[in-house]
Design a protein around this nucleic acid. Structure first.
Length: 467
RNA sequence: GUCUCGUUCGUCUAGAGGCCUAGGACAUUGCCCUCUCACGGCAAUAACACGGGUUCAAAUCCCGUACGAGACGCCA
């Protein structure tokens, strides 16, 4: 049997991090078993479901590298099928018409709550003849829930979960306007799509018991369920805006790499021995549901940063240059011509060792593209005192003499100069760094000089010496 | 309120009755490396929620308690 999983988000205009993780787990599980990963857009709420909102999901999944194996199924296109099944259930006596008004139902719930009972539908129309209803009264179709016994779900993550059938009520499968409810549509679609494993958030666990009623009524084969624990904010409360980024696009904009986000999300709530850093190939090879924990986990932005920094170091330099260019473009007073882009590429191996995200990377690379006069940080300004300016003037002469402006020759020159001046290298390197980067922090001084190039270094020094 | 689930360092986790003096990672602190900042290396701090059982032996099995979470819509 081919394993077939699905990710079934509703297009709300946002791809939440919890949903993204569900998508990841579905994808990895399918790939691990050489199965198929499918996408279904649950767009039955036509008002919220704009193409724009759908694109957010599609773009987000593509960014994370979670490409479905088939074109997405749009739930809204399947309403006729949902209705057909609901009607079939009605005809076979597994469902019935309910003429209660929303007001009556609300009253029913409040009453039950006051009595300390679970707020449920009391089955008023279950055994009543529809002729008892006033003519032309709108009605919903409800499925007949079992009234005795219990239902067990063998959840691949949560284990066996048992609920007494008395807890279930006759839920609505077709609304008064004859559109299907979520519970109904999900079951029909999962069945028709031949889904073998339903992997989703733990918030759906109790839904599963209700959905099971439809499977039973239709005599359909029941898929395997796996309910993933939820992601909370760092304080243990539900993850929200106040905690920081919570949607995939936000993480992208804040400069996280997709492989880092995926790596982090995978390790959040899943473990395989002491493994921490995993490539997509390793993830597919190692992932299985028995490694998923049962308790909710907290979002740890610091650890995400660490993992992002790791993948940044591993990333291809050209790719990173491309990614920071758009960020650099948003800044003023930068010259981003071909020549300066080459400088960034030259320094990228050192640059990427020092950044936690793409925004920092762009920030750290910016000095390469600045025009004279540079902007100086306070600390840099302090270093450029009169004494150091004289020192730099002497150093400029030495640097100018270098026939080949290579990393080695620069390094050699600086050491020699420091020795001659009876100074530690740091006493030379720091003022130099300040003069040519405007900052006290940068990659190694030899790398930095080499990337900037002889002409630019001397020009920047000149501006200091004569300024 | 009712039902369901969960609880190992601050956080993510390893742990399937003796390998546990509870391991790893992030964070924190110290040291080393060093031209700055990082990276890297070494070290330190730090946890089995609580109470009862079962057993020669419990983080691991059972039962309670506490705390936390989720679900209870003609939303998805």
């Amino acid at each position: 049997m081919t394993v077939r999983t699905r990710f079934a988000p509703s297009p709300t205009g946002l791809l939440h991090i919890g949903n993204a993780r569900a998508a990841l787990f579905n994808y990895l599980y399918a790939k691990h078993y050489h199965g198929e990963f499918l996408l279904r857009i649950e767009d039955t709420d036509r008002e919220r479901s704009t193409q724009q909102a759908v694109d957010v999901i599609l773009d987000g999944l593509a960014w994370m590298g979670l490409i479905p194996d088939k074109p997405p199924v749009y739930q809204s296109t399947r309403i006729k099928r949902h209705q057909e099944i609901a009607l079939h259930l009605l005809e076979t006596g597994k469902a019935y018409k309910c003429f209660c008004t929303p007001e009556e139902l609300a009253e029913m719930r409040t009453k039950a709550k006051v009595e300390g009972k679970p707020p449920r539908y009391n089955g008023y129309w279950r055994d009543r003849d529809p002729s008892e209803a006033p003519p032309n009264t709108p009605y919903t179709i409800r499925i007949k829930a079992p009234r005795e016994g219990k239902t067990i779900i063998h959840d691949l993550v949560q284990g066996d979960v048992t609920v007494g059938n008395i807890e279930l009520d006759d839920m609505i499968i077709l609304r008064a306007d004859s559109t299907p409810t979520y519970q109904h549509a999900v079951v029909c679609d999962d069945h028709d799509m031949n889904i073998t494993h339903v992997i989703r958030g733990d918030d759906h666990l109790t839904n599963s018991f209700r959905q099971l009623m439809i499977y039973h009524a239709m005599g359909w084969e029941i898929p395997q369920f796996a309910h993933l624990p939820l992601i909370h904010g760092p304080d243990g409360a539900k993850l929200s805006k106040r905690h920081g980024a919570s949607s995939v696009m936000e993480f992208r904009d804040e400069g996280y790499l997709p492989e880092a986000l995926c790596n982090y999300l995978l390790r959040l709530g899943w473990g395989h021995g002491d493994d921490e850093i995993l490539s997509r190939e390793e993830q597919i090879k190692l992932f299985d549901l028995d490694g998923v924990g049962r308790s909710p986990s907290r979002m740890d932005y610091t650890k995400l940063n660490h993992i992002n920094a790791y993948w940044l170091r591993q990333a291809d330099s050209k790719r990173l240059c491309k990614k920071i260019l758009s960020r650099l473009n948003k800044r003023n007073n930068l010259k981003l011509d071909e020549q300066n882009q080459q400088k960034i590429l030259k320094l990228m191996p050192s640059l990427k060792e020092r950044a936690k995200n793409l925004n920092e990377l762009a920030e750290n690379a910016a000095f390469l593209c600045m025009t004279i006069p540079l902007n100086f940080t306070d600390k840099a300004q302090k270093l450029l005192n009169d004494g150091n300016r004289i020192l730099l003037k002497k150093l400029a002469i030495e640097l100018n003499k270098l026939p080949n402006f290579t990393k080695d020759s620069i390094n050699h020159c600086l050491h020699e100069f420091a020795q001659k001046e009876k100074l530690k290298l740091g006493k030379v390197a720091q003022p130099l760094r300040a003069a040519i980067t405007g900052n006290t922090i940068s990659p190694g001084i030899d790398d930095t000089l080499f990337a900037l190039g002889k002409n630019e270094v001397l020009a920047r020094l000149g501006a200091i010496i004569n300024g």
